[in-house]
Design a protein around this nucleic acid. Structure first.
Lengths: 336, 336
DNA sequence: TTGTACGCGTTATCAT
DNA sequence: ATGATAACGCGTACAA
């Protein structure tokens, strides 16, 4: 009475398990009458096909995983929304995994996932991650992977990114046009593709404006906020920049903290621009000029690529790289 | 060569499948030598026990689900961190589900989960949710449920909340002490337990201060930001409050938007306090006075309760209700 | 310490 | 339209 399964239900209805099974799967033919009878009884007895048995039998989990560095971040939450919508449309479920920007966790999660728990993975890469060999396991297991936003250049899979080089170039140019001459560039990890692209845009924009690029203007910050704040405090007092370009949102936040603490006025003494999808950017003190990525679209496109791969005859061949466009939203932090 | 499984590995090593199995499970005895030999070969051939087969066999998924209203929210992300840590310590995996504050989605997720995908669920409730009968399915399937923060009073399971009544009382008192006489209370859903408790604290604090409570001071807002902003714009121009108590974070944001738009000065013309775990509350313009919940602890405690239930002889008996304490952090939005 | 054999709950194939 | 049966990959009695 306690545990219900397909056999008991079959016995209860004087039917075979095959018929029960058919009632729950759309395809096979079965008389409308018995189907309804089965479904009714199933609801009454609270029967649902056992997920693990089905998956074992079908060798499909109808589930995908999304791996991302952090949760409390509008960019990722919007991207996830996009992904989930597409997944649901395709009859798939979505599992969320968070790495906290910790490379070790990323490896552990991939490890956990390569036992067939999911049919495919959409991921935004974390941390330095020099060795990406652990991803080869996925290829061996034929679990397709799609990167979004933060990608590893040396891993040859489908990717969705934004025009980081161009938007960074424009962002830097914006600071220069607002009169900045000494612009520092804040990065968490230079080696990460996204950091490289954004940095190059910054460097080239400086060059174009005839400003000589100085290596010590590129500030290597940390994932840890306190650490970043102390680094930035140092920077503000020694380099005394008149412009800050934060390559990721949290570094803009850290910059604000440091400026507040040192009573450095934004935008009078230093102007700030940042990559950010922060919903509350307009409410910051002062409101923050942002380069904003189309987060939702990035998610839906990444999901579409994954499902394209999932359905491809030769999945390995799907290596599209989509590049979407970010836009600069000017606010008070780069005002006069 | 392509698909590896326990049989092939066994054949490769001239061993039986049971021995292989034993090598992967901690318990059964097996000689250290063969165990190492097996593990080595497994790594070489990229073998991992199939998750779905194991789960089917063991009738355990070693996985829990966390269901929450939203992602881009510091409170929930901290809570999730706490939960994940405890889960990992217990050898469990954590799946994340987001409802977007949509009751229908919550029902759908619970439905999906009741087929045995997870061994237990930790949830923060969404939306109005008048009918909680869909949760009975979990009980029938013996999948334990633990609520955190946003709970349904009529559902008799373990819960972890904060002292909403007391902190709301104190928050209101704080506004009164700062000179507010006409304080509106913003709520998204009065019927939700958390809304009720917080509202009662507000009402009682008014009463204690000799301020007559007016029903139209309780503003029913929306999950949709634009809608909330338009409601608040209305409120600011008609009621003209000198104090705003936002019972949830997003309503504080909406209030800020509305005030900015109407050029109503915070805190000079209206003071604002809000429940919030916003990391950037100090950076808002002006910095926001918050009632902050111990998010991480809520998560870890909820997880502990879940695992206690999971291990209990009679799970139905675990109905502890833990109440943790929030604290008020005073900032400029309620300053002079 | 290791091997044999069965069953977990389902679905697909084949038969009726 | 429905039923019988084998197989998915694994873990555990039980046997050796």
């Amino acid at each position: 009475m306690d545990d219900i399964n397909i056999k008991k239900l079959a016995k209860d209805l004087n039917l075979s398990t095959s018929t029960i099974s058919r009632a729950f799967r759309g395809n096979s033919d079965i008389s409308q009458a018995t189907k309804e009878r089965i479904l009714a009884k199933a609801k009454e007895l609270n029967y649902q096909p056992n997920l693990y048995a089905s998956n074992l039998r079908e060798k499909k989990s109808k589930t995908i995983a999304v791996i991302m560095p952090e949760l409390a971040n509008n960019f990722f939450s919007e991207a996830v929304n996009g992904i989930e919508r597409v997944a649901r449309d395709n009859g798939y479920h979505t599992l969320l995994y968070v790495t906290d920007d910790d490379y070790q966790k990323e490896v552990a999660i991939i490890d956990d996932l390569s036992n067939g728990r999911v049919d495919g993975i959409i991921m935004s890469a974390s941390g330095e991650a020099n060795d990406h060999n652990y991803l080869s396991k996925l290829k061996k297991k034929k679990i397709p992977l799609v990167f979004f936003d933060r990608v590893y250049d040396d891993v040859d899979v489908a990717k969705v990114t934004t025009n980081d080089y161009a938007s960074s170039f424009e962002g830097t140019k914006h600071l220069i046009e607002r009169g900045c001459k000494k612009i520092v560039f804040l990065v968490i990890n230079k080696s990460l593709s996204i950091g490289k692209m954004r940095m190059q845009g910054y460097v080239d924009a400086l060059r174009e404006a005839g400003i000589t690029y100085r290596q010590d203007w590129v500030i290597d910050c940390s994932n840890d906020r306190e650490e970043s704040i102390s680094i930035l405090t140092q920077v503000l007092t020694t380099i005394k920049p008149d412009g800050i370009f934060a390559s990721v949102e949290r570094l803009a936040m850290a910059s604000y903290y440091a400026c507040h603490k040192l009573e450095v006025k934004i935008p009078e003494q230093v102007k700030v621009i940042s990559y950010s999808s922060l919903e509350i950017a307009p409410l910051l003190n002062p409101s923050l000029t942002t380069i904003t990525q189309p987060a939702g679209s990035i998610g839906t496109e990444a999901a579409r690529l994954l499902f394209k791969t999932l359905e491809a005859a030769e999945p390995a061949l799907v290596r599209d790289h989509l590049v979407l466009t970010s836009k600069i939203i000017q606010r008070r932090s780069t005002g006069v």
